[in-house]
Design a protein around this nucleic acid. Structure first.
Lengths: 338, 338
DNA sequence: CTGAAAGCGCTTACAG
DNA sequence: CTGAAAGCGCTTACAG
């Protein structure tokens, strides 16, 4: 019990007036507003979410789809989203659409269509065509972060980022530079764009023939395993590694150290993200602010939700990556021209 | 549009019958059921979540409160919960109640009371008294995982776990054993119980005077920083470290290696969890299955939700930790009796 | 086995 | 500024 009817009774007004007083819509005299407010807190009134949704057509909820919370970047974006949502008073329903799980399919086929939310944020989803269709079919605003395939995706320029990373190593004098990570399973578009940026820089430096992509899971253990393989072979050893993401870079550093290599003397490593552990490993990286991207996504989404259907919404400014030079990169020790 | 009324019209039955046919309650002839089902798929019927909730009193949603998704353990539990929920067809609303954020307060004061979910799972929440009161005030079943303060908490025996970890080192001949981690900010009960287990084992070995607790954040960088401090001082250096969790243990190993120590020759380290990186660092640990704990929590919660109010529900079996010996622990090199 | 009716707890034009 | 009434889209006893 303790519905709005009870509040109205205690305050001595009608339900309509109580509703207007509480939710702020329409005219209510200041005096009435106060009486209703105190009646509400007196009876401990909490509106029923489903009744509000049904009557108003607004769920006060935002959906978030992402491929798991294991990757540092996704977890950070999620936390940024959550914080913005909390301060806006909105609930967050989570859909963990990890690739290859039976859940992913159900999310796109059933869950998303249920109208549980007023808007959806896709993080790192990289949907295939059928999935994108499903998302476009739901009748509510959608905003995406770091997800290939969506219009107006909020994301750093992935090609630029690894181009700059590669140029950083080239500028230090490296020639044997390898690109590490991604390409296991379906290659995501973020991965391909980063690979492309590396390739572009190598080509521009006349090193197109040296282009090498070693695939691995985008994770610390993934980078570790792949790097352990590569670095074990002395003759093929690169002097520099451009990693698809910091997790991979960190894995590579751990592997290198285990093999007795000294970073950056024997090997330079550069990543993308500015992961929580980057400082610990003195990792040079192209830093991005993941949490901020979550907040920006929420801002944009809320504006889209408020906007008249068909109304224009100023897009969010794109996030920028900046080079943070620490101590995992230096001129190569072997300066012999290869 | 395309509500159940439309489905009923197409199938040539009443809304009541359509509803029964679709949601399975009550008697419907097989033939009618089929007609309704095909009408539903023909018009692309998706029930409105809020209408269903309002009419039935069931939201088909479970709430999850946890202190962030950064800690490996919490992220794993969350993924376990999500998967079980997806296969049960339930939505998950997430509340990130990171300690010290303004959001945490609002979650306990407002969000939890809104009746958005049929049941709540608290993960690692460690509520203080006021928070616990709030949770008890919401009128729905609550299940907790690794959260001090809740009745019937699903958790490994934290005292036992670090007692066994300590005994493992004692059994190898270590005497200078230190407990690393926790105790920054409000010490959680998980942390204190693990510390207590260490203390118990040390006392039993007659080493009560050697008991040492070095506090640090429960994170890899936290363990790294604290261990770098400790290990820098040669004279006070322990031969063994019992870490409050694997993150801390891994941080300590990284710090030790950076200082030129060889694990386990110069230092033994043991953790709790079996973190994703444990294999990479050859970490000896007391392993627990975090994802499974998430599923178990969902099972228990769903049974509580189904149960008659006041009805009994068989509790879930408690998870067990098992010692996984890798290569971060060995007999101490200095065998000189201290 | 099926249908008419009431009701879940709000919000929102519409009169006044 | 306020109230009576309809309605959001379902489910659920209750009759039949």
């Amino acid at each position: 019990m303790n519905g709005i009817a009870e509040v109205a009774r205690v305050a001595g007004v009608s339900k309509s007036t109580a509703s207007r007083a509480l939710s702020g819509g329409g005219y209510v005299s200041e005096q009435t507003r106060r009486r209703v407010a105190s009646a509400a807190s007196q009876v401990g009134y909490v509106p029923s979410a489903s009744a509000v949704s049904l009557a108003s057509g607004r769920t006060k909820t935002v959906g978030v789809v992402l491929p798991g919370v294991t990757r540092w970047f996704f977890a950070q974006v999620l936390e940024g989203i959550q914080q913005s949502l909390l301060s806006a008073g909105l609930d967050l329903v989570l859909y963990d659409a990890r690739i290859g799980t039976p859940g992913r399919r159900r999310i796109f086929d059933d869950f998303l269509a249920r109208g549980r939310f007023d808007g959806l944020i896709a993080v790192g989803v990289e949907p295939h065509d059928a999935e994108l269709e499903r998302i476009e079919a739901i009748r509510c605003p959608v905003v995406s972060v770091a997800s290939g395939g969506f219009p107006d995706d909020i994301a750093i320029d992935d090609m630029d980022v690894s181009r700059r990373a590669t140029e950083h190593l080239l500028g230090l004098g490296h020639r044997r530079i390898l690109f590490l990570g991604g390409g296991t399973g379906r290659e995501t578009s973020v991965e391909s764009r980063r690979l492309e940026g590396y390739r572009t820089a190598m080509d521009a430096a006349g090193l197109g023939e040296r282009v090498t992509h070693v695939r691995c899971d985008v994770s610390v253990p993934g980078g570790y395993a792949a790097a352990a393989d590569i670095l074990g072979d002395l003759r093929a050893r690169p002097t520099g590694i451009v990693a698809v993401a910091d997790e991979v870079a960190i894995g590579a550093i751990i592997a290198a150290q285990r093999l007795g290599l000294v970073i950056p003397h024997d090997l330079s490593v550069i990543g993308v993200d500015d992961h929580e552990y980057a400082g610990m490993f003195l990792l040079t990286t192209l830093a991005q602010d993941a949490r901020a991207q979550g907040s920006v996504a929420v801002d944009l989404l809320l504006r889209r939700i408020e906007a008249e259907p068909g109304g224009l919404v100023v897009p969010a400014p794109q996030p920028q990556a900046r080079l943070v030079v620490r101590n995992s990169t230096a001129a190569p020790f072997e300066t012999v021209p290869a």
